[in-house]
Amino acid sequence: MPFCLRQDPAVTVYLPIAELSVNIFIILGMGAAVGFLSGMFGVGGGFLITPLLIFYNIPPVVAVATGANQVVASSISGAITHFRRGTLDMKLGTVLLVGGLAGATVGVWIFSWLRRLGQLDLFISILYVVLLGTIGALMLQESVRAMRRAKKNEPLPLKRPGQHNWVHRLPLKMRFKKSKIYLSAIPVVGLGFGIGILTSIMGVGGGFIMVPAMIYLLRIPTNVVVGTSLFQIIFVTAYTTMVQAATNYSVDIVLATILMVAGVIGAQYGVRAGQKLRGEQLRALLALLVLAVGIRLAIGLIVTPDDIYSVAVGGMGY
């Protein structure tokens, strides 16, 4: 137990679904810190909140479902801002959403199946290690390169949209007016589907994968990407929350509320801090944090557990 504190009744709050008492200030702090980072970097924060909850002994089943619920709140404020600015493509978002809802349904089904097999915790950890390791390494590489460039006073290399790739040769093309793009619906639905699966298994919004994929793979103009991805994330995470609540009974409303309130407040300060500070160094810091969380999870997989046996109420149908 990394955070082993003496239980003081004044600061503990009982989480009815996770079935344990936690220190309310640690949960508030976690929510505020992740909210701050998500405001600063424009990410949803689900990929940080879920592992942090797992480190704090919240059962992974509850951490994932509650994480998805928390992402609903953090994406809404962002999506509203983008909607006001007109940087949200509803049509593109809706096509993404079709794939996202299907993916989330399949994801919850996989989630329940892994839980029955007793492999859910392992699977969540492995996915996080792979994902956080990859994202962290890529971000670190990118920010180090940017810092070097800033040192040498080199201008940013001009981004070339390049030739149309295989994605643009697919059939079922649709016109997305706001994004000013003519694109096949297949890769859009496919991307939504993949992210939907991740939402239900990992409790993340998936913006950190969707945004680069939309920019580099689908070549959607950068200005509408963030708003549109946030739009679809709201509905996929809301849907995942509902399905998780209905099938696994694993959404903890008390935990989610504390995280959400702390998160949205933290995010406001994060946005302000992010505007004042240097981008590359911040990205390098976030990359290191992401890598640290990934390494911590990887250690948990490799280190010999205290007890190789575990007991769960219920039979194989659990």
């Binding site: 609903v72 809404i76 404020s77 509902m242 609540a245 009974y249 959404v251 409303i253 509320t257 949205v264």
Partner: peptide, 20 residues
């Protein structure tokens, strides 16, 4: 569970919207 899930989403919507 359905109503419970809806309430969880509703709280998230209110929190997110309220903050904005």
């Amino acid at each position: 569970p359905i109503q419970y899930g809806m309430l969880c989403v509703l709280i998230a919507v209110i929190t997110g919207w309220g903050a904005s």
